[in-house]
Design a protein around this nucleic acid. Structure first.
Lengths: 208, 208
DNA sequence: AGGCGTATCAGCCAAAAGGCTGAGGGCACT
DNA sequence: AGTGCCCTCAGCCTTTTGGCTGATACGCCT
Protein backbone atom coordinates (compact mmCIF):
# COMPACT_ATOMS: atom_id res chain seq x y z
CA UNK A 1 0.00 0.00 0.00
CA UNK A 2 1.38 3.34 -1.06
CA UNK A 3 1.91 6.00 1.59
CA UNK A 4 -0.41 8.98 1.42
CA UNK A 5 1.40 12.33 1.58
CA UNK A 6 -0.35 15.17 3.30
CA UNK A 7 0.24 18.92 3.61
CA UNK A 8 -1.34 20.74 6.57
CA UNK A 9 -2.45 24.36 6.26
CA UNK A 10 -3.72 25.99 9.43
CA UNK A 11 -2.83 29.20 11.16
CA UNK A 12 -2.77 27.60 14.60
CA UNK A 13 0.41 25.85 15.57
CA UNK A 14 -1.34 23.67 18.10
CA UNK A 15 -3.77 22.38 15.53
CA UNK A 16 -1.02 21.54 13.11
CA UNK A 17 1.08 19.71 15.65
CA UNK A 18 -1.92 17.92 17.08
CA UNK A 19 -2.95 16.78 13.67
CA UNK A 20 0.57 15.79 12.79
CA UNK A 21 0.79 13.68 15.92
CA UNK A 22 -2.55 12.11 15.22
CA UNK A 23 -1.76 11.29 11.62
CA UNK A 24 1.64 9.99 12.73
CA UNK A 25 -0.08 7.01 14.30
CA UNK A 26 -1.14 5.79 10.88
CA UNK A 27 1.45 3.88 8.93
CA UNK A 28 0.04 4.79 5.55
CA UNK A 29 -0.19 8.56 6.11
CA UNK A 30 2.75 10.94 6.12
CA UNK A 31 2.68 14.66 6.77
CA UNK A 32 5.22 16.10 4.38
CA UNK A 33 4.81 19.81 5.11
CA UNK A 34 2.99 22.39 7.16
CA UNK A 35 1.96 25.95 6.35
CA UNK A 36 0.27 28.66 8.35
CA UNK A 37 -1.16 30.84 5.60
CA UNK A 38 -2.90 30.34 2.29
CA UNK A 39 0.11 31.54 0.35
CA UNK A 40 2.48 29.24 2.18
CA UNK A 41 0.06 26.43 1.63
CA UNK A 42 0.11 26.97 -2.12
CA UNK A 43 3.89 27.06 -2.11
CA UNK A 44 4.14 23.92 0.00
CA UNK A 45 1.68 22.08 -2.22
CA UNK A 46 3.56 23.13 -5.32
CA UNK A 47 6.80 21.87 -3.84
CA UNK A 48 5.61 18.56 -2.44
CA UNK A 49 2.66 17.74 -4.69
CA UNK A 50 0.95 15.87 -1.87
CA UNK A 51 -1.98 13.54 -2.30
CA UNK A 52 -4.07 15.52 0.13
CA UNK A 53 -4.07 19.07 1.46
CA UNK A 54 -5.85 19.63 4.74
CA UNK A 55 -6.84 23.21 5.11
CA UNK A 56 -8.50 25.47 7.61
CA UNK A 57 -10.85 27.99 6.09
CA UNK A 58 -10.35 30.80 8.56
CA UNK A 59 -6.84 32.05 8.18
CA UNK A 60 -5.85 35.51 9.29
CA UNK A 61 -5.04 38.05 6.60
CA UNK A 62 -4.03 37.34 3.05
CA UNK A 63 -5.43 34.58 0.90
CA UNK A 64 -8.52 33.09 2.45
CA UNK A 65 -9.25 29.40 2.55
CA UNK A 66 -11.78 29.36 -0.24
CA UNK A 67 -9.51 31.12 -2.67
CA UNK A 68 -6.66 28.88 -1.66
CA UNK A 69 -8.75 25.82 -2.48
CA UNK A 70 -9.61 27.21 -5.87
CA UNK A 71 -5.98 27.88 -6.68
CA UNK A 72 -4.83 24.53 -5.42
CA UNK A 73 -7.35 22.80 -7.62
CA UNK A 74 -6.35 24.90 -10.56
CA UNK A 75 -2.67 24.22 -10.04
CA UNK A 76 -3.13 20.50 -9.69
CA UNK A 77 -6.57 18.96 -10.09
CA UNK A 78 -5.30 15.60 -8.93
CA UNK A 79 -4.55 16.62 -5.37
CA UNK A 80 -7.52 16.45 -3.06
CA UNK A 81 -8.32 19.26 -0.67
CA UNK A 82 -9.97 18.50 2.64
CA UNK A 83 -11.43 21.34 4.62
CA UNK A 84 -10.65 21.01 8.30
CA UNK A 85 -12.29 23.72 10.26
CA UNK A 86 -14.13 24.64 13.44
CA UNK A 87 -17.43 25.90 12.16
CA UNK A 88 -20.02 24.53 9.84
CA UNK A 89 -21.65 27.63 8.43
CA UNK A 90 -23.93 27.11 5.48
CA UNK A 91 -22.11 29.63 3.40
CA UNK A 92 -18.65 28.18 3.97
CA UNK A 93 -19.76 24.70 3.10
CA UNK A 94 -21.36 25.74 -0.15
CA UNK A 95 -18.41 27.81 -1.20
CA UNK A 96 -15.82 25.26 -0.22
CA UNK A 97 -17.61 22.55 -2.14
CA UNK A 98 -17.90 24.56 -5.26
CA UNK A 99 -14.33 25.73 -4.97
CA UNK A 100 -13.50 22.06 -5.29
CA UNK A 101 -13.06 20.69 -1.78
CA UNK A 102 -13.23 16.89 -1.59
CA UNK A 103 -14.40 16.78 1.98
CA UNK A 104 -15.34 18.93 4.91
CA UNK A 105 -14.33 17.89 8.41
CA UNK A 106 -15.00 19.59 11.69
CA UNK A 107 -12.16 19.85 14.14
CA UNK A 108 -14.03 17.83 16.70
CA UNK A 109 -14.29 14.88 14.35
CA UNK A 110 -13.27 11.48 15.70
CA UNK A 111 -9.76 10.33 14.70
CA UNK A 112 -11.18 7.43 12.75
CA UNK A 113 -13.32 9.84 10.77
CA UNK A 114 -10.30 11.90 9.89
CA UNK A 115 -8.27 8.91 8.78
CA UNK A 116 -11.01 7.57 6.61
CA UNK A 117 -11.63 10.98 5.11
CA UNK A 118 -8.02 11.18 4.03
CA UNK A 119 -8.00 7.67 2.62
CA UNK A 120 -11.32 8.28 0.94
CA UNK A 121 -10.13 11.52 -0.59
CA UNK A 122 -7.28 9.92 -2.51
CA UNK A 123 -9.70 7.37 -3.92
CA UNK A 124 -12.03 10.06 -5.07
CA UNK A 125 -14.65 9.54 -2.42
CA UNK A 126 -15.76 12.60 -0.58
CA UNK A 127 -16.21 12.44 3.12
CA UNK A 128 -17.64 14.89 5.52
CA UNK A 129 -18.68 15.15 9.12
CA UNK A 130 -22.27 14.19 9.75
CA UNK A 131 -23.62 17.64 10.61
CA UNK A 132 -21.95 19.03 7.53
CA UNK A 133 -23.39 16.34 5.34
CA UNK A 134 -26.89 16.95 6.48
CA UNK A 135 -26.65 20.66 5.88
CA UNK A 136 -25.26 20.13 2.46
CA UNK A 137 -27.93 17.67 1.49
CA UNK A 138 -30.59 20.10 2.44
CA UNK A 139 -28.97 22.70 0.27
CA UNK A 140 -28.85 20.34 -2.66
CA UNK A 141 -32.35 19.13 -2.41
CA UNK A 142 -33.90 22.52 -2.17
CA UNK A 143 -31.85 25.62 -1.74
CA UNK A 144 -34.76 27.52 -0.36
CA UNK A 145 -35.67 24.92 2.14
CA UNK A 146 -33.01 26.28 4.39
CA UNK A 147 -34.55 29.70 4.35
CA UNK A 148 -37.18 30.45 6.92
CA UNK A 149 -40.59 31.43 5.55
CA UNK A 150 -39.98 35.04 6.32
CA UNK A 151 -36.61 34.99 4.64
CA UNK A 152 -38.03 33.37 1.53
CA UNK A 153 -40.70 36.01 1.40
CA UNK A 154 -38.12 38.72 1.65
CA UNK A 155 -35.92 37.12 -0.97
CA UNK A 156 -38.74 36.98 -3.41
CA UNK A 157 -39.39 40.67 -3.02
CA UNK A 158 -35.68 41.28 -3.19
CA UNK A 159 -35.56 39.79 -6.67
CA UNK A 160 -37.89 42.53 -7.75
CA UNK A 161 -35.22 45.06 -7.06
CA UNK A 162 -36.68 46.72 -3.98
CA UNK A 163 -34.58 48.74 -1.56
CA UNK A 164 -34.42 48.00 2.15
CA UNK A 165 -36.80 50.80 2.87
CA UNK A 166 -39.31 49.46 0.37
CA UNK A 167 -38.93 45.93 1.65
CA UNK A 168 -39.69 47.19 5.12
CA UNK A 169 -42.81 48.95 3.99
CA UNK A 170 -44.08 45.95 2.06
CA UNK A 171 -43.61 43.60 4.97
CA UNK A 172 -44.56 46.02 7.71
CA UNK A 173 -41.25 45.69 9.49
CA UNK A 174 -38.45 48.13 10.23
CA UNK A 175 -35.46 48.61 8.02
CA UNK A 176 -33.35 47.20 10.83
CA UNK A 177 -35.22 43.95 10.65
CA UNK A 178 -34.91 43.86 6.91
CA UNK A 179 -31.17 44.13 7.29
CA UNK A 180 -31.10 41.32 9.78
CA UNK A 181 -33.04 39.03 7.47
CA UNK A 182 -30.84 39.98 4.54
CA UNK A 183 -27.70 39.17 6.47
CA UNK A 184 -29.11 35.73 7.21
CA UNK A 185 -30.11 35.19 3.60
CA UNK A 186 -26.68 36.17 2.35
CA UNK A 187 -25.07 33.76 4.78
CA UNK A 188 -27.28 30.91 3.68
CA UNK A 189 -26.83 31.55 -0.01
CA UNK A 190 -23.10 31.98 0.36
CA UNK A 191 -22.97 35.48 -1.07
CA UNK A 192 -22.21 38.85 0.39
CA UNK A 193 -24.12 41.39 -1.58
CA UNK A 194 -27.74 41.78 -2.52
CA UNK A 195 -26.72 41.81 -6.15
CA UNK A 196 -25.27 38.32 -5.90
CA UNK A 197 -28.21 37.16 -3.84
CA UNK A 198 -30.63 38.28 -6.52
CA UNK A 199 -28.56 36.70 -9.25
CA UNK A 200 -28.41 33.31 -7.56
CA UNK A 201 -32.00 33.41 -6.40
CA UNK A 202 -33.34 34.08 -9.86
CA UNK A 203 -31.11 31.56 -11.53
CA UNK A 204 -32.02 28.84 -9.09
CA UNK A 205 -35.29 28.93 -11.02
CA UNK A 206 -38.62 28.92 -9.37
CA UNK A 207 -37.91 32.52 -8.52
CA UNK A 208 -38.65 33.97 -11.88
CA UNK B 1 -70.58 61.93 -32.42
CA UNK B 2 -70.09 62.12 -28.70
CA UNK B 3 -67.85 64.82 -27.29
CA UNK B 4 -64.58 63.62 -25.81
CA UNK B 5 -63.86 65.06 -22.35
CA UNK B 6 -60.26 65.75 -21.47
CA UNK B 7 -58.39 66.67 -18.29
CA UNK B 8 -55.01 68.39 -18.64
CA UNK B 9 -52.25 67.83 -16.09
CA UNK B 10 -49.11 69.87 -16.52
CA UNK B 11 -47.16 72.11 -14.19
CA UNK B 12 -46.70 74.83 -16.78
CA UNK B 13 -49.56 77.25 -17.17
CA UNK B 14 -48.53 78.16 -20.69
CA UNK B 15 -48.62 74.58 -21.82
CA UNK B 16 -52.05 74.04 -20.35
CA UNK B 17 -53.55 77.13 -21.89
CA UNK B 18 -51.89 76.51 -25.22
CA UNK B 19 -53.22 73.02 -25.29
CA UNK B 20 -56.64 74.16 -24.18
CA UNK B 21 -56.72 76.69 -27.01
CA UNK B 22 -55.56 74.12 -29.50
CA UNK B 23 -58.09 71.52 -28.43
CA UNK B 24 -60.77 74.19 -28.41
CA UNK B 25 -60.61 74.28 -32.19
CA UNK B 26 -61.99 70.78 -32.34
CA UNK B 27 -65.72 70.43 -32.01
CA UNK B 28 -65.59 66.92 -30.59
CA UNK B 29 -63.03 67.61 -27.86
CA UNK B 30 -63.74 69.47 -24.63
CA UNK B 31 -61.28 70.27 -21.89
CA UNK B 32 -63.23 69.85 -18.66
CA UNK B 33 -60.50 70.52 -16.13
CA UNK B 34 -56.85 71.42 -15.63
CA UNK B 35 -54.42 70.50 -12.88
CA UNK B 36 -50.83 71.45 -12.18
CA UNK B 37 -49.69 68.56 -9.99
CA UNK B 38 -50.13 64.82 -9.91
CA UNK B 39 -52.37 65.01 -6.87
CA UNK B 40 -54.61 67.62 -8.38
CA UNK B 41 -54.74 65.58 -11.53
CA UNK B 42 -56.03 62.56 -9.63
CA UNK B 43 -58.63 64.66 -7.91
CA UNK B 44 -59.75 66.26 -11.13
CA UNK B 45 -60.00 62.93 -12.87
CA UNK B 46 -62.00 61.50 -10.00
CA UNK B 47 -64.39 64.40 -10.14
CA UNK B 48 -64.89 64.62 -13.89
CA UNK B 49 -64.19 61.04 -15.01
CA UNK B 50 -62.90 62.28 -18.36
CA UNK B 51 -62.38 60.07 -21.38
CA UNK B 52 -58.76 61.10 -21.64
CA UNK B 53 -56.15 62.50 -19.25
CA UNK B 54 -53.22 64.27 -20.85
CA UNK B 55 -50.29 64.36 -18.53
CA UNK B 56 -46.80 65.69 -18.39
CA UNK B 57 -44.31 63.34 -16.79
CA UNK B 58 -42.02 65.87 -15.20
CA UNK B 59 -43.94 67.66 -12.52
CA UNK B 60 -42.20 69.42 -9.71
CA UNK B 61 -42.41 67.89 -6.27
CA UNK B 62 -45.02 65.47 -5.04
CA UNK B 63 -46.47 62.64 -7.05
CA UNK B 64 -44.53 62.07 -10.22
CA UNK B 65 -46.12 61.42 -13.57
CA UNK B 66 -45.50 57.69 -13.67
CA UNK B 67 -47.09 57.11 -10.30
CA UNK B 68 -49.96 59.34 -11.25
CA UNK B 69 -50.61 57.23 -14.34
CA UNK B 70 -50.58 54.09 -12.29
CA UNK B 71 -53.10 55.48 -9.85
CA UNK B 72 -55.31 56.86 -12.55
CA UNK B 73 -55.47 53.48 -14.22
CA UNK B 74 -56.17 51.82 -10.93
CA UNK B 75 -58.92 54.25 -10.07
CA UNK B 76 -60.60 53.96 -13.43
CA UNK B 77 -59.22 51.58 -16.04
CA UNK B 78 -61.61 52.96 -18.65
CA UNK B 79 -60.05 56.39 -18.86
CA UNK B 80 -57.11 56.64 -21.19
CA UNK B 81 -53.92 58.40 -20.17
CA UNK B 82 -51.83 60.16 -22.77
CA UNK B 83 -48.34 61.23 -21.87
CA UNK B 84 -47.56 64.68 -23.22
CA UNK B 85 -44.01 65.61 -22.46
CA UNK B 86 -40.89 67.28 -23.74
CA UNK B 87 -38.36 64.50 -23.67
CA UNK B 88 -38.30 61.02 -25.05
CA UNK B 89 -35.93 59.22 -22.72
CA UNK B 90 -35.85 55.46 -23.02
CA UNK B 91 -36.57 54.97 -19.40
CA UNK B 92 -39.59 57.23 -19.26
CA UNK B 93 -41.19 55.61 -22.24
CA UNK B 94 -40.82 52.13 -20.89
CA UNK B 95 -42.10 53.09 -17.50
CA UNK B 96 -45.00 55.12 -18.80
CA UNK B 97 -46.10 52.30 -21.04
CA UNK B 98 -46.03 49.74 -18.34
CA UNK B 99 -47.74 52.07 -15.93
CA UNK B 100 -50.58 51.94 -18.43
CA UNK B 101 -50.22 54.98 -20.68
CA UNK B 102 -52.21 54.69 -23.92
CA UNK B 103 -49.96 57.00 -25.88
CA UNK B 104 -46.86 59.09 -25.67
CA UNK B 105 -46.71 62.45 -27.39
CA UNK B 106 -43.91 64.94 -27.57
CA UNK B 107 -44.76 68.56 -27.03
CA UNK B 108 -43.54 69.47 -30.48
CA UNK B 109 -46.04 67.13 -32.10
CA UNK B 110 -48.17 68.51 -34.90
CA UNK B 111 -51.72 69.54 -33.91
CA UNK B 112 -53.19 66.86 -36.16
CA UNK B 113 -51.11 64.27 -34.40
CA UNK B 114 -52.41 65.39 -31.04
CA UNK B 115 -56.03 65.32 -32.15
CA UNK B 116 -55.78 61.91 -33.63
CA UNK B 117 -53.98 60.62 -30.56
CA UNK B 118 -56.86 61.75 -28.39
CA UNK B 119 -59.47 60.29 -30.69
CA UNK B 120 -57.51 57.11 -31.01
CA UNK B 121 -57.08 56.78 -27.28
CA UNK B 122 -60.80 56.65 -26.58
CA UNK B 123 -61.14 53.92 -29.18
CA UNK B 124 -58.44 51.90 -27.57
CA UNK B 125 -55.79 52.60 -30.16
CA UNK B 126 -52.47 53.77 -28.88
CA UNK B 127 -50.71 56.56 -30.65
CA UNK B 128 -47.29 57.97 -30.19
CA UNK B 129 -44.93 60.39 -31.80
CA UNK B 130 -42.72 58.84 -34.40
CA UNK B 131 -39.41 59.09 -32.53
CA UNK B 132 -41.06 57.59 -29.50
CA UNK B 133 -42.50 54.74 -31.51
CA UNK B 134 -39.19 53.82 -32.99
CA UNK B 135 -37.49 53.75 -29.63
CA UNK B 136 -40.20 51.64 -28.16
CA UNK B 137 -40.12 49.16 -30.99
CA UNK B 138 -36.44 48.68 -30.56
CA UNK B 139 -36.99 47.98 -26.90
CA UNK B 140 -39.59 45.39 -27.69
CA UNK B 141 -37.70 43.60 -30.34
CA UNK B 142 -34.54 43.28 -28.40
CA UNK B 143 -34.03 45.00 -25.10
CA UNK B 144 -30.30 44.73 -25.39
CA UNK B 145 -30.12 46.20 -28.81
CA UNK B 146 -30.30 49.60 -27.26
CA UNK B 147 -27.29 48.91 -25.10
CA UNK B 148 -23.89 49.68 -26.52
CA UNK B 149 -21.50 46.72 -26.75
CA UNK B 150 -19.59 47.89 -23.75
CA UNK B 151 -22.74 48.31 -21.72
CA UNK B 152 -23.96 44.86 -22.63
CA UNK B 153 -20.65 43.42 -21.58
CA UNK B 154 -20.86 45.19 -18.28
CA UNK B 155 -24.44 44.13 -17.71
CA UNK B 156 -23.57 40.53 -18.26
CA UNK B 157 -20.88 40.70 -15.61
CA UNK B 158 -23.23 42.64 -13.40
CA UNK B 159 -25.65 39.72 -13.36
CA UNK B 160 -22.94 37.69 -11.74
CA UNK B 161 -23.11 39.87 -8.70
CA UNK B 162 -19.83 41.71 -9.07
CA UNK B 163 -19.10 44.99 -7.31
CA UNK B 164 -18.05 48.15 -9.14
CA UNK B 165 -14.48 47.58 -8.14
CA UNK B 166 -14.54 44.05 -9.50
CA UNK B 167 -16.24 45.15 -12.69
CA UNK B 168 -13.52 47.70 -13.18
CA UNK B 169 -10.80 45.14 -12.72
CA UNK B 170 -12.39 42.67 -15.10
CA UNK B 171 -12.82 45.23 -17.83
CA UNK B 172 -9.60 47.13 -17.22
CA UNK B 173 -11.37 50.41 -16.65
CA UNK B 174 -11.65 52.71 -13.64
CA UNK B 175 -14.45 52.53 -11.14
CA UNK B 176 -15.55 55.96 -12.35
CA UNK B 177 -16.13 54.59 -15.82
CA UNK B 178 -17.98 51.63 -14.42
CA UNK B 179 -20.32 54.00 -12.67
CA UNK B 180 -20.90 55.96 -15.83
CA UNK B 181 -21.79 52.83 -17.77
CA UNK B 182 -24.06 51.68 -15.01
CA UNK B 183 -25.91 54.97 -14.96
CA UNK B 184 -26.53 54.61 -18.69
CA UNK B 185 -27.66 51.04 -18.31
CA UNK B 186 -30.08 51.95 -15.56
CA UNK B 187 -31.53 54.71 -17.69
CA UNK B 188 -32.03 52.40 -20.64
CA UNK B 189 -33.55 49.62 -18.62
CA UNK B 190 -35.80 52.01 -16.76
CA UNK B 191 -34.54 51.10 -13.31
CA UNK B 192 -32.57 52.95 -10.72
CA UNK B 193 -30.64 50.39 -8.76
CA UNK B 194 -28.28 47.63 -9.69
CA UNK B 195 -30.55 45.21 -7.96
CA UNK B 196 -33.41 46.00 -10.30
CA UNK B 197 -31.07 46.01 -13.27
CA UNK B 198 -29.91 42.51 -12.46
CA UNK B 199 -33.42 41.30 -11.91
CA UNK B 200 -34.71 42.59 -15.22
CA UNK B 201 -31.61 41.57 -17.13
CA UNK B 202 -31.79 37.99 -15.94
CA UNK B 203 -35.49 37.69 -16.46
CA UNK B 204 -35.32 39.06 -19.97
CA UNK B 205 -33.75 35.67 -20.62
CA UNK B 206 -30.70 35.17 -22.69
CA UNK B 207 -28.83 36.49 -19.73
CA UNK B 208 -28.96 33.41 -17.61
C1' DA C 1 -37.12 25.02 33.44
C1' DG C 2 -33.98 25.66 29.87
C1' DG C 3 -32.55 25.71 25.20
C1' DC C 4 -33.29 26.60 20.22
C1' DG C 5 -35.01 28.78 16.28
C1' DT C 6 -37.53 32.59 14.49
C1' DA C 7 -38.79 37.27 14.14
C1' DT C 8 -38.45 41.68 15.69
C1' DC C 9 -35.65 46.08 16.55
C1' DA C 10 -31.50 49.61 17.68
C1' DG C 11 -27.25 52.00 17.12
C1' DC C 12 -22.75 52.60 15.19
C1' DC C 13 -19.52 52.50 11.67
C1' DA C 14 -17.35 51.58 7.21
C1' DA C 15 -17.88 50.49 2.48
C1' DA C 16 -20.44 50.63 -1.68
C1' DA C 17 -23.48 52.60 -4.74
C1' DG C 18 -25.80 56.39 -6.99
C1' DG C 19 -26.59 61.39 -8.68
C1' DC C 20 -24.51 65.29 -10.78
C1' DT C 21 -21.39 67.97 -13.47
C1' DG C 22 -17.84 68.40 -16.41
C1' DA C 23 -14.36 66.88 -19.68
C1' DG C 24 -11.23 64.77 -23.30
C1' DG C 25 -10.24 61.52 -27.14
C1' DG C 26 -11.70 58.54 -31.01
C1' DC C 27 -14.61 57.48 -34.79
C1' DA C 28 -18.13 57.75 -38.12
C1' DC C 29 -21.45 60.04 -40.77
C1' DT C 30 -22.78 64.17 -43.06
C1' DA D 1 -15.59 71.09 -40.51
C1' DG D 2 -19.09 70.00 -37.55
C1' DT D 3 -22.16 66.96 -35.11
C1' DG D 4 -23.12 63.09 -32.52
C1' DC D 5 -22.16 58.72 -30.23
C1' DC D 6 -19.18 55.95 -27.53
C1' DC D 7 -15.77 55.22 -24.11
C1' DT D 8 -12.99 56.93 -20.80
C1' DC D 9 -12.13 59.43 -16.25
C1' DA D 10 -12.57 62.80 -11.97
C1' DG D 11 -14.51 64.95 -7.94
C1' DC D 12 -18.16 65.81 -4.72
C1' DC D 13 -21.91 64.75 -2.15
C1' DT D 14 -25.93 61.89 -0.48
C1' DT D 15 -28.11 57.65 0.18
C1' DT D 16 -27.92 52.82 0.61
C1' DT D 17 -25.84 48.71 2.04
C1' DG D 18 -23.46 45.69 4.87
C1' DG D 19 -20.96 44.22 9.32
C1' DC D 20 -21.17 43.92 14.18
C1' DT D 21 -23.12 43.72 18.69
C1' DG D 22 -26.64 43.15 21.48
C1' DA D 23 -31.49 42.96 22.97
C1' DT D 24 -36.55 41.42 23.46
C1' DA D 25 -40.24 38.24 22.63
C1' DC D 26 -42.75 34.16 21.17
C1' DG D 27 -43.36 29.31 20.41
C1' DC D 28 -41.74 24.62 20.42
C1' DC D 29 -39.47 20.68 22.09
C1' DT D 30 -37.24 18.23 25.69
Amino acid sequence: MKTISVVLVDDHLVVRSGLRALLGTQADIAVVAEASTGEEGLAAAAEHTPDVVMMDLAMGPGLDGIEAIRKLRQANPRQAVLVFTTYDSDADIVRAVDAGAMGYLLKDAAPEEIFSAIRGAVEGRSVMSAPVASRLFQQMRNPEEILTPREAELLSLLTQGLSNRELGRRLFISEATVKTHLAHIYAKLGVETRAAAIATAIRREGMR
